[in-house]
Amino acid sequence: MGFLESVALYSFLRGPMVWLAFIIFIFGSIYRIYTLINLAKKEKVVLPFINIKAAIKSYLHWLIPFASRNWRLKPYFTIFTFLFHTGLIFVPIFLYAHNALWYESWGISWWTLPEIVADVWTIFVIIGCIFFIGRRIFDPTVRFVTNYADFIFVFICLFTFLTGFLAHYQWVLPYKAMLNLHILFGEIMLIAIPFTRLTHMYYFFFTRAWMASQAASWKTKDW
């Protein structure tokens, strides 16, 4: 426990590791998007067929809960997936404690979530993680196509939010140890995004645009 609680680890994670994580995340993502668009340019059929209007319609239908047929077919999945993904994006950005860190370092800050909202949303994210893990274990269709990497993504998210939540309430482990773990998992998640299938965070917009354009050319809907 001594090392986990140490100030040395904290100052390393809070200092150079943050820079490293954000640089890898931002530049890695730009690189991934750039290479994908460059590859698409080489293909004859992709870019000339992109239909922006259809793509935006399709984004809206798939980013709003129950707006597409498949969301309506799986109501529980839809509820959990939307709580999970919105929480994953908005809670870290608008959390009061994270804002305070930004303010401390760079003197900038923005709106923050009320504590109760942040807490409940975090719990939903954790429940969402458990739901996804359960689905991967108990649903035979999903189990057949699941490999270990799929579990690792979910567990990274789960640990990040769980340690953050526990650190806030100072349960289980001493505060400093939990906080260090929380920062570590958060940084692992940021670094993992460009290298793993977590790229679906931004590839969503490209693949969706392509399918929407195709569906528009067949005069049908893809939601």
Partner: peptide, 10 residues
Amino acid sequence: CSLYCPFGLD
């Protein structure tokens, strides 16, 4: 299936 995929994967 492409129309049912949340990512619109072809």
